[in-house]
């Protein structure tokens, strides 16, 4: 069965690029423009994985992830994982990975595949 991935980023070019990468590799991709949009889309689409940018306008990502209990989340960010930890992110169990931007395409695919096969 085709797995669904929700890509959340406020930058359209990043959204589209990640969408292209994942679609070529056989995933169904939906996108959201910010945290609130993300929460709305989860209900209807029930994605298997959320790729979530850490810094977005609107509701802080820290608040957004607290409302996501079931779905696996992987963060994407220009800041380093250590900075994200300092901000109190990355504490939940369903946060499974951290993609440092700018990411390497083949690395992204490998790791997404690994997460979804678990």
């Amino acid at each position: 069965m085709t797995k669904t991935i929700l890509v959340v980023d406020d930058e359209p070019d990043v959204r589209q690029s990640v969408k292209m990468i994942l679609e070529v590799n056989g995933y169904k991709v939906i996108t959201a423009v910010d945290g609130d949009d993300c929460l709305k889309k989860i209900i209807g689409e029930k994605p298997d994985l959320i790729l979530l940018d850490i810094m977005m306008p609107g509701t802080p990502v820290g608040e957004v992830v607290k409302q996501i209990k079931e779905t696996k989340i992987a963060f994407m960010s220009v800041v380093r994982i250590s900075d994200a930890r300092k901000r109190g992110l990355c504490t939940q169990d369903n946060i499974v990975d951290f993609f440092q931007k700018p990411f390497n395409v083949s690395d992204l695919i490998d790791r997404v595949e690994m997460i979804l096969n678990e």
Binding site: E11, D13, V14, Q16, S17, V18, M20, I21, V24, V78, K101, P102, F103, N104, V105, S106
Partner: peptide, 10 residues
């Protein structure tokens, strides 16, 4: 750089 590098790599 993020979308740029992603597109280039693709």
């Amino acid at each position: 750089m993020t979308p740029m590098k992603a597109q280039l790599q693709m």
